[in-house]
Design a binder for these strands. Structure first.
Lengths: 132, 132
DNA sequence: CTTGACCCGGTACCATACTACAGGGTTTAT
DNA sequence: ATAAACCCTGTAGTATGGTACCGGGTCAAG
């Protein structure tokens, strides 16, 4: 079985079948060729694309931003400097996210170490994180 | 001026005034004392709390999860080991997010370096990021 | 002591990202 | 060859996280 139907793809990727069709409408998945019956024919590696979308969402990217990430592929229609500019902007976004996560982690780590010794502690260090 | 009104707090924190009341309803902000007129009286450091919420959201935490993070404060009603356990679970979440972001960043960096050299590249490296 | 800017609760509406369902056709295993 | 299990489009409904508006009361500067 070379190609996956919509339902098989959904199952493989661990999402609802409607999500697949929704992503196609949103342009996050390409419009793949159909059988004579109208059934979509997905190449098996489309699973990776859906998983990518799901992971990126968990990292705080909107579907619109994920579209942008996915469109950062090099083709003959997009000039090289443009792709590069967009990719670099995204890298900056990502670096900021990483910094914020590190601050959060630090605050939580401080909390746990404060916690490990005694039975109770008075104040909460967590709010100290992420104060710009 | 010791206390902030809802509007002042919103302005300081850079959010809509309705958001403040919404967060109160959701339990993300405490029910603060009121003036005789019914006006809320916020201590100035409540600004930090709102900023924390906003940052955490941008990192992919839902308001529900942020509630959980905020409830990781040590009080006499929560046993220490429980707070610790929850904080450590959140730290693990955060570490995973950081790892995923690093993978994404790496993929994008590879894309930009591929771009600077030649004219075109065939496949999209970003999908390789975040493949579990 | 008024007038414009603010606050109140309550309700309704909005965008995003799905999810369900209706009504109909298709595939596949028995 | 027929029933269960699938797919199609289109439309409607849901959850989350706000945002807007209403009718009314409050505050503070002139």
């Amino acid at each position: 079985m070379r190609y996956l139907t919509t339902g098989q793809l959904a199952k493989e990727a661990g999402v609802n079948i409607e999500t697949i069709r929704y992503y196609e409408r949103r342009g996050l998945l390409p419009k793949v060729p159909r059988r004579a019956s109208g059934y979509r024919q997905y190449p098996p590696d489309m699973v990776r694309r859906i998983r990518f979308i799901k992971h990126a969402q968990a990292l705080g990217f909107s579907l619109k931003e994920i579209s942008e990430l996915l469109s950062l592929r090099l083709d003959k229609n997009t000039p090289c400097y443009e792709v590069k500019r967009r990719a670099e902007a995204k890298i900056k976004d990502i670096e900021e996210k990483i910094e914020n996560l590190k601050r959060m982690k630090k605050a939580l780590a401080r909390l746990t170490s404060a916690c490990s010794g005694k039975g109770t502690v008075l104040d909460c260090p967590i709010l100290e994180a992420l104060d710009n």
